[in-house]
Design a protein around this nucleic acid. Structure first.
Length: 601
RNA sequence: GCGGGUAUAGCUUAGUGGUAAAGCUCCAGUCUUCCAAACUGGCUAUGAGGGUUCGAUUCCCUCUACCCGCUCCA
């Protein structure tokens, strides 16, 4: 069979996911539902394994992180405090001409970057809004035609400019540059009112429509505004909301973390790329609480900041936020390497100051090279004390911790040292646009031993990780069969730790009862400790191929040697076959678990 | 939400205004001593709803889902 066209890799992966039971479309028999995906038998195991690796690496194997499992629906005030009610309702406009989507809050910023706006700005006298109608007319017929073809000024310069002239005669002039562009975009002002121009082509933008990205529901049987609530758009906020309870119930001390794995929901505008962006997804989030640098300074007399090559292996008491942030990037990188995602498939994107949310100090995205592009797998943000402070403010409940060392250090300060410390904090905070009052209050509490911890947030998407792992595992091998015909076989090369099934057991032949019962026995032995599979259908080669597609790293075959037919030295030994190179070795049944368990755990 | 494309079995494809074909997969059996063997038999499909028509999988409309762009960033 000659392949007439090359099927894109992503389509092959989607097809395999369905065929083998990794991922199905949600509600498929009813036509499916946009942005929702189900995990089939193999996918459910795969995801569970990934979840477990995160849980173990982030919590079980550490002394300083504890878990939480909070509800999906929480008090709606949480989302007010976190800012999601506001920021997740971005109003958007569509251009009636070029159909592009524009976020209303970014309209002016986009405008300023456009060549047509910049070339127009050159015609307007800086600072005065003074301009020559002749210049504008000339622009409209020349540059404007190329740069902003759908702008009213370009399509119909005389009429458009007449409004400007008319207002001008009456002493009205555009208040600012923004309004100036509204004039230039408006042709029939008496009919349409002012038109907002599309930054891309100058065409007319629709009225902004709200895009609320949170899914809503109501608690209680009667729907009303009083019981409106949201399905959480992230798991993180529950951690902040329960921060105090965790601190009070577990004897944790800063620095420490709270981790959580759970579902989150976002009404994405366009779910896309298979499960990569879906409306219901699972997050694995850690909020790691650290002392503010000011606290570290006071207790230790210095703050360790990051420099190239700094040792990030073991946390130090004098680490500042920057070190902790880098530390978690290193930790997460090591985690990914441990499940097979090495440096060759990962990338990092350090957000620039302009990209950062206003409260964030730094954020790095860990990216994976997906078949459809290099996209985010996890974000690691240094969020300062924004979240806890917001909840402290909105709830009215103190979310500070008390640090005995801190108080002891503060007590030792002389009055001059205290004053100098406070002045220094006020200056530093001023540089970050924070008020002097806030700084003073912060110092007051701090010198008594109280502070609101800062947070480093490694936040990973489980579904994205599952997709990454599927994409990475997918391998096609060209084979030539006995007749010389070429065929392509698929092998899912999962890291053994995350493979859905660890081992499959076969009798060499299914019509020999002795082989079957022996193989069953081996299967019963293994399945108590490993995700194991038993198969006696088809030929031995077919069974290997089936397991290769499922990504099972090991197959065990019971043959006549196992029964001792060729002598006692091979009695109770089996063939252990390795997925990736097809190699085989002879292993005693009693040694199997000892061999396999270390490889898959 | 807007624009473009797609929709036939579990998968990959064929085909037709007159009741859908094939390969692979899957299941059962015969056989088979280690990488999708062979043989026999079997299950399974025109995304949903309307319209035109004597008759629609085929033509038209609507919806849904998927893919590509605008947008988004766990």
């Amino acid at each position: 069979m000659s392949q007439t066209k090359e099927i894109p890799l992503m389509e092959k992966i989607v097809s395999l996911c369905k065929r083998k039971g990794f991922i199905f479309q949600s509600s498929e028999i009813y036509g499916g539902i946009n942005g929702f995906w189900d995990y089939g038998p193999l996918g459910a195991e795969l995801k569970r394994n990934l979840r477990t690796t995160w849980w173990n690496a982030m919590m079980r194997e550490r002394e300083d992180v504890v878990p939480l499992d909070a509800t999906i629906i929480m008090h709606p005030a949480i989302w007010k405090a976190s800012g999601h009610v506001d920021t997740f309702a971005d109003p958007m406009s569509t251009c009636k001409s070029c159909k592009k989507l524009v976020r209303s809050d970014q309209w002016w910023a986009m405008m300023c970057e456009q060549p047509w706006v910049q070339s127009l700005a050159a015609l307007v006298e800086p600072g005065t809004d003074a301009f020559h109608t002749g210049d504008l007319l000339k622009w409209a017929k020349g540059k404007g035609k190329q740069l902003a073809p759908n702008l009213a000024l370009v399509r119909n310069p005389e009429i458009t400019l007449s409004w400007l002239a008319q207002d001008h005669e009456q002493g009205k002039r555009p208040q600012d540059a923004r309004e100036f562009y509204l004039y230039l975009a408006t042709e029939q002002r008496n009919v349409t009112g002012f038109v907002t121009p599309c930054p891309h082509c100058g065409g007319e933008l629709t009225e902004p429509r709200p895009f609320n990205l949170m899914l809503r529901t109501h608690y209680g049987p009667i729907e009303s505004d009083d019981n409106l609530c949201y399905l959480r758009p992230e798991t993180a906020q529950a951690i902040f909301a329960q921060f105090k309870n965790v601190v009070d119930s577990t004897r944790v001390k800063v620095p420490f973390g709270i981790g959580q794995i759970g579902k989150a929901f976002r009404n994405e505008i366009t779910p896309r790329n298979f499960t990569f962006r879906s409306r219901e997804f699972e997050q694995m989030e850690l909020e790691f609480f650290i002392p503010p640098d000011e606290v570290v300074q006071l207790i230790h007399g210095n703050v360790s900041t990051w420099s190239e090559g700094a040792d990030l292996s073991t946390p130090q008491p004098n680490w500042g936020w920057e070190m902790w942030h880098r530390y978690w990037v290193a930790q997460r990188t090591a985690y990914y390497a441990g499940i097979g995602l090495g440096p060759d498939v990962l990338d990092y994107y350090w957000q620039s100051k302009a990209d950062l949310a206003h409260y964030a100090r730094a954020c790095v995205d860990i990216l994976f090279k997906f078949p459809f592009g290099t996209e985010e797998l996890e974000g690691i943000a240094a969020r300062g004390d924004f979240d806890l402070s917001q909840h402290q403010k909105h709830s009215g409940k103190p979310l500070e911790v008390f640090d005995e060392e801190l108080r002891a250090a503060a007590v030792k300060l002389t009055d001059e040292q205290r004053a100098a410390f406070i002045t220094k904090v006020q200056e530093d905070w001023n540089d970050h646009n924070k008020s002097r009052e806030d700084a003073t209050l912060f110092c007051e509490r701090l010198l008594k031993g109280f502070y609101v911890p800062h947070v480093i947030e490694p936040s990973a998407g489980l579904d994205r990780l599952a997709l990454a792992v599927l994409a990475l595992a997918y391998t096609e091998i060209e084979k030539t069969d006995a007749k010389g015909a070429k065929e392509t076989v698929t092998v899912m090369r999962f890291h053994p730790r995350i493979a859905p099934k660890k081992v499959a057991v076969f009798p060499l032949l299914k019509n020999k009862p002795e082989l079957v019962s022996k193989a069953r026995g081996v299967y019963d032995l293994l399945k108590k400790h490993l995700a194991a599979d038993y198969d006696e259908g088809g030929s031995i080669g077919k069974r290997y191929a089936r397991q290769d597609e499922a990504g099972t790293p090991f197959c065990v075959t019971v043959d006549f040697d196992t029964l001792g037919e060729r002598g006692p030295e091979l009695l109770d030994t089996v063939t252990l076959r390795h997925r990736d190179d097809g190699s085989q070795e002879r292993v005693k049944i009693s040694d199997l678990l000892g061999r396999l368990l270390p490889l898959v755990q």
